[in-house]
Nucleic acid binder design. Sequence first.
DNA 1: ACACTGATGTCAGTTACTGACATTAGGAGA
DNA 2: TCTCCTAATGTCAGTAACTGACATCAGTGT
Lengths: 186, 186
Amino acid sequence: MVRWEPDTRERLREAALDLYTAKGYADTTVAEIAASVGVTERTFFRHFADKREVLFNGSDVLQEQFVDGVASAPAGTAFEIVMHAVLSAVTFFPEERRPYSRRRQAMIVANPELMERELNKMAGLVAALGAALRERGVVEPEATLAAESAVTVFRLAFEEWVAPSSTRTLAEIEQSLFAALRSLAR
Amino acid sequence: MVRWEPDTRERLREAALDLYTAKGYADTTVAEIAASVGVTERTFFRHFADKREVLFNGSDVLQEQFVDGVASAPAGTAFEIVMHAVLSAVTFFPEERRPYSRRRQAMIVANPELMERELNKMAGLVAALGAALRERGVVEPEATLAAESAVTVFRLAFEEWVAPSSTRTLAEIEQSLFAALRSLAR
DNA sequence: ACACTGATGTCAGTTACTGACATTAGGAGA
DNA sequence: TCTCCTAATGTCAGTAACTGACATCAGTGT
């Protein structure tokens, strides 16, 4: 019977954020991250496609949440469906995870390379959401426009949610942004 | 009196797209690009921050067009102002540049690294547009939402404009997308 | 016992990118 | 004309991200 050890993958993820925080993203080498959990650099690259990807683990799970949210939404307009999906996905960000999200997001916004990757993940969300909408019979260009709008709202809401002074819940922020978006195109 | 030679920068830009097209982006080294115009690799990196940036030259000019478009828009809602800005910027994409844009965009969508950079440039447009709107007194969150929406419309319109079968003008596509967006949030 | 599978180690190699310093060409002014 | 200055480039050594190929090894099912 051996002492329990978390996944190598998970340990790499934690070590990476710790090191990025301590020394800065650019000044941290992949070799250091690997060494700090007792594996080789090669192993790191077997778990993560590149040095950036280690910070973007949950993104596929979030994507599923969005897609499920579309599938489970009651009948309605494209806009109502994506609103439902985005608001459902808030369960992915419970209050106790806010400190972690803050740390991670601070790292991302401070490093253009990471921000690029973040934007890329958001584009993935848009693609998945758009596909889910088309699955439900929404046609172009409404499917893509609704998907884009929804992810934009989600992203802006998330950014405010992790802002240092923010106290509102993610769902509240999202709702006010959806409302503002509605009245924009008036 | 010497034979006229275009900028080293411009020649690198052309050579890069040619080589990327001929051998593929990943299989082209920066050293090859540099050698093909008779300079060293180091010189390439003095002109372009990295291997991707060489395909994103005009983006700052486009950004200025957007900002100018906001400044020159008649009084109106945030939505009307960004519509004016986006529609003004079509002069940046005359019909004769469509073949070049098609080539370039095909290269970008085929390479995730390049797509990431593209998304990053779009985020730059959003930021500039948002700032220009705030300059005109538009407040948050309307400024950011309008900027995001406008750049989304521009991007989707551009993608359709460079699609192989597309014949409509960029302005036409943009107008129909703005209209669709308007009726989305109804 | 044996084969198989999945995760890891090892190692050599490529290439993007950077810093430091040298060189050169052309223009402005003494 | 000589000289200084600046901008662009060359040279060179170095770092670190990433990859492919192959070996090892522990566990698992048969």
